[in-house]
Computed example of a mutant assay.
Amino acid sequence: MAQRVNEVMTPVPVAVSPDTTLVTVSDLMRRHGIGDVLVVHEGRLRGLVTDRDIVVRAVAVQKDVGDTTVGDICSTNMVTVAPEEDADEAVRLMRRHAVRRLPVVDGDRPIGMVSIGDLAVQRDERSALADISAEPPNT
């Protein structure tokens, strides 16, 4: 029996408003052991910021991370998936769009996040990616 996205996703993803500074969001990532945070305004998904976005779109171009906000650098052209979708559809979307994570949305309201690691665990809990994904984060 195929699993649904809501069975493999991480519920209640970490989310911030667009005016959150990069310093603040970086600290949230560190404390939660994650590499991505949703950008939400009035309960609606507006973007996604990753640790890579912070490095490439801010640090590498010498932006002031204390003054730069996630709204300034986040990705707004996102691929999302609905919670009732088959997990295989999430895999297809990740492959087609070359992304490692998908916000799970109910309409335009975020309810979770599904990552390549979540799907690796779901498909083969003995795979190397599943093992790595199950390890506690480096802090």
Rank of each mutant, 00 (worst) to 15 (best):
residue 69 T to L: 03
residue 130 A to C: 00
residue 109 R to M: 07
residue 136 P to R: 08
residue 4 R to K: 14
residue 124 D to R: 02
residue 58 A to V: 04
residue 53 D to Q: 03
residue 64 D to Q: 09
residue 25 V to N: 06
residue 26 S to P: 02
residue 139 T to M: 14
residue 4 R to D: 10
residue 13 P to T: 06
residue 88 D to W: 02
residue 118 D to V: 08
residue 45 L to F: 02
residue 88 D to C: 07
residue 13 P to L: 08
residue 90 A to L: 10
residue 136 P to Q: 10
residue 110 P to I: 04
residue 37 V to H: 04
residue 10 T to Q: 06
residue 35 G to D: 03
residue 48 L to K: 05
residue 24 T to M: 12
residue 66 G to W: 06
residue 61 V to M: 05
residue 98 A to R: 15
residue 2 A to D: 13
residue 81 V to I: 14
residue 74 C to A: 12
residue 125 E to V: 09
residue 2 A to L: 11
residue 131 D to L: 09
residue 112 G to Y: 04
residue 72 D to N: 12
residue 105 V to Y: 10
residue 39 V to D: 03
residue 109 R to F: 07
residue 120 A to G: 00
residue 80 T to I: 15
residue 83 P to G: 04
residue 20 T to H: 12
residue 61 V to G: 10
residue 41 H to Q: 15
residue 112 G to R: 01
residue 99 V to T: 13
residue 118 D to Q: 11
residue 90 A to Y: 07
residue 120 A to Q: 00
residue 93 L to W: 11
residue 9 M to Q: 10
residue 79 V to Q: 04
residue 80 T to E: 09
residue 57 R to T: 06
residue 106 D to M: 06
residue 110 P to V: 06
residue 88 D to V: 04
residue 87 A to D: 09
residue 45 L to R: 03
residue 67 D to T: 14
residue 114 V to T: 10
residue 36 D to H: 02
residue 139 T to N: 12
residue 70 V to D: 06
residue 62 Q to C: 12
